[in-house]
Structures are given as C-alpha cells and as structure tokens.
Amino acid sequence: MITQSQTLQVLQNKINLPKKEFILEIELNGKMKFENILSDMCNQFGIYHRVLSANVEYVEGRSFGSVQLYINANSDDRKQLELYLNKNKLLNTSVEYVCRKYF
C-alpha cells in the first residue's frame, strides 16, 4: 500500500490555499538588519515582496526606521511571517490590499 508523507500532504494543501495581496509595514528597531529580514522572507517562507517605501537609517550596523512591503501570500505563510516578526520583536502591521479593476 502506497502512502503519502506528511510533508507532501502539507505542500499539496499549501498549493490549494488562495493567495491574497497585503501591504506589510515593519518598524525597524535595530534588533535585525533590514537585508536579513528580506532574505528570510524569501528563503524561509517563500514570500516574495516589493518594497513600496523604505525610510531606513543605519547606526553602527543596525537598521532603524520603517518599511512598507507589498506581499502576495496565503494565510498560513502570512501567519508564519507574523510569528517570525513578533519573535524578533519587530512591530508590524498588515492591511489587505484590494485593487479595483475597471472594465
């Protein structure tokens, strides 16, 4: 009898989840580098982003300021990203992005 592994089932479930567009704002407080946050989003969570605005200052190699990112992710990936940011004590806010299409 052939059985599927749990990781394969999780991946199949993720594929079927609908993706939504969000604007994520992150307040940088010097605890993590801005570049590390962006690379972790891509590498660990598979969330690709566009930088909408960034006001980042570097003091002694630490990142301070605020960043707004456009992301397109499913709800599970978004929750994992939020837990990651909270774990690293980065204040974050996300708003669902709705674009009107005119025909």
Rank of each mutant, 00 (worst) to 15 (best):
M1Y: 15
M1R: 11
M1F: 13
I2Y: 15
I2K: 11
Q4I: 10
S5G: 11
S5H: 15
Q6E: 12
T7P: 05
L8A: 15
L8R: 15
V10T: 14
L11Q: 09
Q12H: 14
Q12P: 01
N13Y: 11
N13L: 09
N13K: 12
L17Y: 09
L17F: 08
P18H: 03
E21V: 07
F22C: 00
I23F: 06
L24V: 06
E25H: 07
E25Q: 07
L28P: 00
L28V: 06
N29L: 03
G30D: 02
G30F: 10
G30I: 04
K33T: 07
F34W: 15
F34H: 11
I37T: 05
L38M: 03
S39M: 12
S39E: 14
D40M: 07
M41R: 01
C42E: 14
N43E: 08
Q44N: 14
F45T: 03
G46R: 08
G46Q: 08
I47M: 02
I47T: 02
H49G: 04
V51F: 07
V51H: 06
V51W: 08
L52S: 15
S53A: 06
A54Q: 04
A54P: 00
V56S: 06
V56L: 09
E57K: 15
E57R: 15
E57I: 14
Y58G: 01
V59K: 13
G61T: 02
R62S: 02
R62G: 00
F64T: 00
F64M: 02
F64W: 09
G65T: 02
G65K: 03
S66L: 05
V67K: 02
V67L: 11
L69V: 02
L69G: 01
L69T: 01
Y70C: 03
I71H: 02
N72D: 07
N72S: 05
N72A: 03
N72I: 04
A73M: 01
N74G: 05
N74V: 03
S75W: 09
S75C: 06
S75V: 08
S75N: 12
D76W: 13
D77E: 14
D77W: 05
D77K: 10
D77S: 12
R78K: 08
K79V: 09
L83S: 09
Y84N: 00
Y84C: 01
L85A: 00
L85I: 01
K87V: 07
N88A: 03
L90K: 06
N92H: 14
T93F: 13
S94K: 13
S94Q: 12
S94L: 11
S94T: 12
V95D: 10
E96S: 05
E96P: 00
E96Q: 08
R100Q: 14
Y102H: 09
